[in-house]
């Protein structure tokens, strides 16, 4: 198991490095000069060259890349803004802030949003999926599958404002959407995030309902499930012990991908509700051609996805002894 995790981690690092290279090259392939943006209307060639120099983009691309990599591991102190300890992604072109501390700063919002929504959509989605599978063919099943179908074709930017308009502005049932640090005030952390959680998880929950239902129904048709029934085990025992165990594999796989990408920033949700998370940061970085910030957000999101990929694979070993023992 340790070997496996070590090997996978090594692989993930390689992927991250390759990703950095690609991002670097793509950025410099862009027809836009970030210095031009910062230089403003009264720009002179001298000023431009000066900015180039301060940004460090006057050097050759491989050289810049090398400096960047070095910074990641040992830190740098060649910035005008001040020292930059490892892991150093540099300073934002746009805000002049240290990228890493910006990321750390924005992270709690994204984590709160992702974890809360994940809790909600896992319980609601899997619960209704299991219920639909258990009651297969009945009105309950049809209602749940039909509802899931409709909801999973919804969009956050549609549901979000709708929920806000109805629940906040019209009925005043909920507080304004707002991020408060959990350690500062848990109650307002909760009330401020309830609506984004609900909206984000609605769409996910619908997908999980459909997935849980179909994979349970598939498992219930497996021969070993039939054998368990033939031994006289009760329907619920077979359902929750035999069929559920087999359904876990696809569910865990999808969940790993979903939570990984949510932790990298739920761009649309954050934008819809004006939550200052990583997703917003990513949009800003692109908008301002902010290379250090862009690289930072991208690498962070990629690392999250890879991390959860490894966790999912490790989970397989716990779920399926065939994986563990081979």
């Amino acid at each position: 198991m340790l070997r496996f995790i070590f090997r996978r981690t090594l692989g993930a690092v390689v992927i991250l490095v390759l990703l950095t290279v690609v991002a670097f090259l793509l950025f410099f392939g862009m027809p836009r000069d970030p210095a031009l943006l910062m230089c403003g209307k009264t720009c002179t060639p001298d000023a431009l060259a000066n900015i180039h120099k301060t940004l460090g983009i006057d050097k050759s691309i491989p050289e810049q890349f090398w400096i960047f990599l070095q910074g990641l591991f040992v830190g740098r102190d060649d910035f005008a803004q001040g020292p930059c300890p490892a892991p150093c992604f540099g300073y934002s072109y746009h805000t002049n802030e240290n990228v890493w501390s910006t990321l750390i700063d924005r992270l709690p919002t994204t984590v709160s949003l992702a974890v809360g929504a994940a809790f909600l959509f896992l319980f609601v989605g899997l619960g209704s999926g299991l219920l639909a599978a258990w009651k297969r063919g009945t009105l309950i099943d049809k209602t749940f599958t039909g509802g899931a179908m409709v909801l999973s074709s919804m969009q956050i930017y549609f549901l979000g404002p709708l929920a806000m308009a109805f629940l906040v502005y019209q009925t005043h049932l909920f507080d304004q959407v707002e991020y408060t640090n959990f350690t500062k005030n848990p109650a307002s952390w909760f009330t401020g995030l309830v609506i984004p959680w609900a909206v984000l998880s609605t769409i996910f929950a619908a997908q999980y309902t459909r997935m849980a239902r179909s994979s349970m129904i598939e498992q219930l048709q497996e021969e070993h499930v039939r054998t368990a029934r033939a031994k006289g085990m009760s329907r619920s025992y077979v359902f929750f012990r035999y069929a559920w165990r087999g359904s876990l594999i696809p569910i865990v796989t999808i969940f790993g991908i979903d939570i990984g990408s949510l932790l990298g920033g739920a761009i649309i949700t954050e934008y819809t509700f004006g939550l200052p998370g990583l997703g917003q940061l990513a949009v800003e970085a692109v908008k301002f051609s902010d290379l250090p910030l862009l690289l930072g957000v991208m690498l962070f999101s990629a690392a999250m996805i890879l991390l959860f990929n490894i966790i999912v694979d490790a989970c397989y070993a716990f779920i399926d002894p065939r994986v563990r023992l081979s």
Binding site: E222, E223, H224, R226, I319, R322
Partner: peptide, 13 residues
């Protein structure tokens, strides 16, 4: 009951 294919008829889990 004894089924035909013992590989699929026994639970792998």
């Amino acid at each position: 009951m004894i089924f035909q294919d013992p590989l699929t008829a026994l639970s792998p889990y």
